[in-house]
Design a protein around this nucleic acid. Structure first.
Length: 202
DNA sequence: TAAAAGATATCCT
DNA sequence: GGATATCTTTTAG
């Protein structure tokens, strides 16, 4: 497994990133929950919920670049979210890292996050970035460069993976592009976006 | 130049 | 479980 394995469709990239180890600034964790995003309206997987849907902009340019780069963006002003860019160069694909289990540097992670339950240290995209020390300025770093401050170590794909709808999106609400490992307490509880259309009443 | 929306987290009831 | 804080990016006028 190397960076070439990430030059694929968003959902395939998501499955490959799941279970990988993300190292950043003294803290490392195994990724246990991800969401796939990507595509443009005329592409093979149009995804109206993705930042890339309306074409490249200054913010989402990394999504259109080569695989293996870190795409960070700010949400609601304060939170930072981390993505791994996927797809071949020129194709928009990214995997949002939603949760991880800290395997090294727990003390440091606790210090950054304030004292909290271990399972909550890197649960949720914003919290995960805080625990690993990832900031908005890390946008575009090559995760496979040995000298990069943030690195990704791919593992063999997990055999047991669960899939379901993405959290907090108001478009393409029912697309099962969220993937997580079973039996992990750090996986987020599913929350439908308050702006999403009401679910069909059975 | 202005306004709205957003891939959230936290605190309150 | 539900409302709100908070600010950047994008889009419209």
């Amino acid at each position: 497994m190397d960076v070439d394995a990430l030059a694929a469709a968003p959902d395939a990239v998501a499955r490959r990133v799941l279970g990988a180890t993300l190292r950043g600034r003294g803290v490392a964790g195994v990724i246990v929950e991800v969401e796939a995003y990507g595509g443009v309206p005329d592409g093979p997987w149009p995804d109206p919920a993705a930042h890339s849907y309306r074409g490249p902009t200054g913010r989402n340019a990394v999504m259109f670049g080569p695989a293996g780069r870190l795409y960070t963006y700010r949400s609601h002003g304060i939170h930072v979210c981390a993505n791994v860019a996927g797809g071949p160069d020129g194709v928009a694909a990214a995997v949002l890292i939603r949760a991880a289990v800290i395997t090294a540097g727990v003390e440091l992670a606790r210090e950054r996050r304030g004292l909290r339950a271990d399972a909550a240290l890197a649960r949720g995209p914003g919290n995960l970035c805080a625990a690993l020390g990832i900031t908005i300025d890390d946008n575009g770093v090559d995760l496979f460069d040995p000298d990069a401050p943030i690195r990704l170590e791919l593992a063999v794909p997990a055999d047991a993976v669960l899939a379901g709808p993405r959290v907090g999106v108001s478009k393409a609400v029912d697309r099962p592009w969220r993937f997580w490992l079973p039996g992990i307490s750090a996986v987020s509880a599913y929350r439908r976006s308050p702006r999403a259309p009401a679910p069909p009443e059975p």
